[in-house]
């Protein structure tokens, strides 16, 4: 009885305020799409890190001839120095480093020639121009700082380099895009809250007479306010479902069907990620509606 009655009130309220309800649906749709986009961008960054950080290594460049670095005062790194560095890696860094191999000047030159068969910027280089290094594979790429701390400053080590740095500009760009999406989402969410507030207020005013009678015959506060709460929540949830649908379409057609085919060596977000984000959007929508209702209803339908 109660349930049916409340539902009836909700739908009559939605009908009466159709334009405002549509506006609420659209604004929550757009704002939550931005929220979802930000979340998906972060997921994409995570995927790229997972993927690429497995491929990259830490390079411990050993002193070449004529280095000005204070640790290279004795000239080119000697066998002893290299051995003692390896010793340190095997003992102190055994839990951080999973694999070590030595790249000699000759091997470095071969790798270089493979990449630049015609020489680099017009100069012809020889193996002697190359630098020997120890290549480390880390168990966890985030542990670079520890490794660098331990190895830097040892005799024979000129510099410890993290190849991850190569990807930094890309991740920075993606992070900026995330911030941008989140910022827009914030603005739109504010608009959504204001709009839901206005809608509930309008609804309350247009049903003033009913609520007045309800108050007088002793309807409880919850019973009076529930239809308004549900109205706002329903519109917001509808918007969030649209946002989820929009993101799904975008991922399906732009990422899975198009990007993945044209650039296929990158791991992309998939529809699974959308299904992971969508419930959060629905929860946000409900929270949004609850927040706006909380501020409005106490003012307009007080006993």
């Amino acid at each position: 009885m109660r349930f049916q009655f409340v539902l009836g009130e909700v739908f009559s309220g939605l009908r009466r305020n159709t334009t405002m309800v549509v506006a609420v649906v659209l604004v929550t749709f757009v704002s939550l799409t931005f929220v979802g986009a930000a979340a998906l961008l972060q997921a994409q960054i995570g995927k790229l890190k997972d993927d690429w950080y497995d491929l990259v290594e830490v390079s411990v460049f050993l002193c070449p001839e004529g280095s000005v670095s204070p640790t290279c005062a004795t000239g080119e790194a000697t066998e002893d120095q290299i051995d003692s560095v390896r010793q340190v890696i095997d003992t102190e860094l055994s839990s951080q480093v999973s694999k070590v191999y030595f790249e000699s000047k000759q091997q470095a030159f071969e790798a270089f020639s493979e990449r630049y068969p015609d020489g680099y910027q017009g100069t012809q280089l020889t193996a002697d121009d190359m630098q020997a290094s120890l290549r480390l594979k880390l168990t966890d790429a985030e542990q670079f700082a520890v490794v660098s701390d331990v190895l830097s400053g040892r005799d024979g080590v000129e510099i410890v380099e993290d190849q991850r740095a190569v990807f930094e500009p890309l991740f920075r760009t993606l992070n900026v895009a995330t911030l941008l999406a989140a910022g827009l989402a914030g603005v739109m969410l504010l608009a959504a809250v204001l709009l839901i507030t206005t809608t509930i207020r309008l609804s309350a005013v247009s049903r003033r007479k009913e609520t007045e009678i309800m108050r007088l015959v002793g309807a409880s506060n919850l019973f009076i306010q529930l239809p308004f709460l549900l109205e706002g929540a329903l519109a917001a949830v509808l918007g969030s479902l649209l946002a989820g649908g929009g993101l799904w379409l975008a991922v399906r057609f732009m990422v899975s069907d198009w990007l993945e085919r044209s650039v296929d060596w990158v791991a992309y977000v998939s529809e699974v990620d959308v299904f992971r984000v969508a419930p959060l959007l629905v929860i946000m929508a409900v929270a949004l509606a609850a927040l706006s209702s909380f501020f409005t209803l106490n003012r307009y339908t007080r006993i």
């Binding site: 009885m1 009655f5 009913e210 009678i213 015959v217 002793g218 309807a219 409880s220 019973f223 009076i224």
Partner: peptide, 11 residues
């Protein structure tokens, strides 16, 4: 009936 509905009286 409204007066009874809103205080949750059964149908």
């Amino acid at each position: 009936a409204f007066a009874l509905q809103v205080i949750g009286k059964p149908r």
